[in-house]
Design a protein around this nucleic acid. Structure first.
Lengths: 205, 205
DNA sequence: AAATATACTAAACAGTGTTTATTATTTCCA
DNA sequence: TGGAAATAATAAACACTGTTTAGTATATTT
């Protein structure tokens, strides 16, 4: 059946076009300017057409959030080349924080915004694939650190959550402007110092 | 002037009434249901009246955020009774996390939501009084820990930001549902383990 | 009592996400 | 090949949102 095949392709193409327009708006103007109407206008379709390809806005934002995890995943996978688990762990922190600060809007969507999780919840799907995969990369590295004699008395899962919390906390506070007004010092200086302290803590035990 | 005095009181009373209604809605139904119209309806005034007492919605949410800091501050000030700085620091972590998990909507407003910070920015006021005060309590305690020989090689400001990031990260990831789908284990178990690991890390160096 | 200032609101404006009813087009099958 | 059925797209509406404007009562002052 050549026709249904072509129709399927056309459907997929327009869905991709919608997502691409959403991504462009999202990255250039932020989540606040990424409305269904603005997406529709960008691709010169009516707003209602969007709903023939996506159930709701949350689903679009979830797809964008997935793209973010692909990008973060690509950066993380480079670290597989680092054989020493401790060095890999520190590099992972660096990579994670750099990604967050270079892609604040995307990081916000991935780890702070409610929309992508709303979509997952609606699906009755209680696993967060994308996040879980990234977390498992961390856990694996922490396990290797423990195997090589580090982090005595800790279990990998708990410690991984603490480490993740720590780097997430640093960037989340910055992204949501809780860092700026906290001290008379330059937020950039605070942040730099904090990252060094974080590395120092990792190394010290 | 008895009349202007009474008028001033009436103005203050109605402003307080607006804030009280906003608080009630906010705590009972969440930030999503706290619209200007719903606040107006609750106190049986028109929506436009709200704007005679508040510039915009951000200002109302900023006032609520202030109430949250008063409550958190009250819990923190109890810890002044703990003389050992290390014990005080650990108790501070406990208090902070308990507050966040018992008042998720309020914590979200205080440390995650954009609205209160938008208000502060609009005021051209680059200090976040409420947050700064809470952070200084932490920094002071960390300084005392350092004075008593702990945390060798660290400076108080940087380490304080790391510790804050860590506890904020833990609760922020949980509040925004990034904890649920990360593992097959019960999120509650993960969280409990992580807090224990956090305390263990604090004690270990 | 008339003029002025204050308090409040109805209605509108410019948005938002989403749904429904309608129209145009394409595909299918007798 | 022509008429029925399926598909694709949309205009318009619905129910919201925060906010502003113009107008109306009420209270105060002169």
């Amino acid at each position: 059946m050549g026709i249904t095949e072509r129709k399927n392709k056309e459907r997929a193409d327009l869905k991709a076009l919608i997502l691409a327009a959403a991504r462009k708006l999202f990255l250039e103007k932020g989540i606040g300017e990424t409305s269904i109407r603005s997406i529709a206008e960008a691709i010169e379709y009516s707003p209602a057409t969007i709903y023939l390809y996506y159930h709701d806005k949350d689903e679009i934002l979830h797809d964008l959030h997935n793209q973010g995890f692909q990008e973060l995943g690509a950066r993380m996978s480079v670290l597989l080349a680092v054989s020493d688990p401790m060095e890999r762990l520190k590099a992972l922190g660096r990579v994670y924080i750099d990604f967050a600060r270079q892609n604040t809007e995307m990081y916000d969507l991935m780890f702070i915004a409610k929309a992508p999780m709303n979509y997952i919840e609606k699906l009755q799907q209680q696993e967060w694939h994308e996040g879980k995969q990234a977390f498992e990369f961390l856990t694996l590295t922490v396990e290797e650190c423990i195997s090589s004699g580090r982090f005595h008395g800790h279990d990998a899962a708990s410690l991984s959550y603490v480490i993740w919390s720590c780097v997430h906390g640093m960037v989340a506070l910055e992204i949501r402007d809780r860092c700026k007004g906290i001290s008379s010092e330059d937020p950039e200086v605070i942040f730099k110092g904090a990252f060094e302290a974080f590395i120092k803590v990792l190394e010290s035990f």
